[in-house]
């Protein structure tokens, strides 16, 4: 454990000792295709907008138009009310995601373990879980609004109910997949319930739990947009887009969508990084 990260550190240092330009040339297979792909996409977008094929503003106009230019270069402005920079909009959305996702993780792991350990419970509730997880986030919004009457708890509930299923189902599967050998060892050693839980069950099911957590973070982020769009008057990237649509600021919509994609990507990478750190050596 102690030696391998050191080894990992020393080798990139050696390669970076070479001229960076030669390094770039040598690894052009890695960065050239994505660069060409994204560049090509932007170019086609620019051209179709320029010749009026679509009504979508061109990528370059995001910088030339004043409204979007301010949003790009000043993500931290705050003029009160809903008039805030994209950083604050995203921050508000992420705060809701964090709350809903945390509850989803706690409930999903706890219920998943219970169901995974008790086949009868699993048979009883699995059809229900499979049914509920098919309900789209947007469909939960009216239900949540009826139940909670307020925007904030309703949004958090929508996140929770969208994100909980993959965590629950994967955790239960991970618990079911604990090799019989490990259970037998626990039986021979007459391990206490608590010891079996912390020393065998959790470490053994951890890769499955993380798979669920990773799927869910993406879903939670998708759900917040859905939730906020129908919740007027909330600061958040979802409502920001809806507001822009109603006022016909198409450039702002495009910018908002780019932010959403970028944040989603970062969240997913973050989970992958966490997974490799915690589940190392499994």
């Amino acid at each position: 454990m102690v030696t391998s990260p050191n080894d990992g550190l020393s080798s990139p240092r050696k390669t970076s000792a070479i001229n960076p330009l030669t390094w770039l040339l040598r690894n052009q297979g890695n960065w050239l295709p994505p660069l060409l792909g994204i560049g090509g996409f932007l170019l086609i977008w620019q051209l179709t907008s320029a010749f009026g094929v679509t009504r979508l503003p061109s990528p370059s106009s995001l910088f030339t138009e004043e409204r979007t230019r301010i949003l790009i270069f000043y993500p931290f402005f705050d003029r009160g009310g809903l008039d805030k920079g994209l950083f604050w909009q995203t921050f508000a959305s992420l705060g809701r995601v964090a709350q809903g996702y945390t509850i989803a993780a706690l409930v999903g792991i706890a219920v998943g373990i219970t169901v995974g350990l008790k086949p009868t419970l699993n048979r009883a509730f699995d059809p229900l879980f499979q049914f509920l997880r098919m309900v789209a986030p947007l469909a939960w919004v009216p239900i949540a609004l009826v139940v909670f009457q307020k925007n904030q708890p309703a949004a958090i509930f929508v996140i929770f109910i969208t994100a909980v299923w993959p965590i629950l189902i994967n955790t239960a599967e991970g618990v079911r997949q604990i090799p019989q050998d490990y259970r037998n060892v626990a039986l021979v050693l007459q391990m206490s319930k608590g010891r079996f839980f912390s020393k065998v069950l959790i470490p053994s099911a951890l890769p499955y739990i993380f798979t669920g957590l990773r799927i869910s973070i993406g879903l939670a982020w998708l759900a917040i947009i859905a939730a906020e769009i129908v919740m007027p008057g909330t600061v958040g990237i979802g409502f920001f887009i809806w507001d822009a649509y109603q006022q016909n600021y198409v450039g702002e919509i495009v910018l908002g969508v780019i932010w959403i994609g970028a944040i989603g990507l970062i969240l997913d990478r973050l989970m992958v990084w966490l997974q490799t750190r915690i589940a190392a050596g499994q």
């Binding site: 090799p179 050998d181 490990y182 037998n184 060892v185 039986l187 021979v188 007459q190 470490p203 050596g281």
Partner: peptide, 19 residues
């Protein structure tokens, strides 16, 4: 009646905890 540490088993697949 049941498994116990007075009859310890060396399992066919080792059954060690790999983490």
């Amino acid at each position: 009646e049941k498994p116990g540490p007075d009859r310890m088993v060396v399992f066919q697949g080792y059954a060690l905890l790999p983490w």
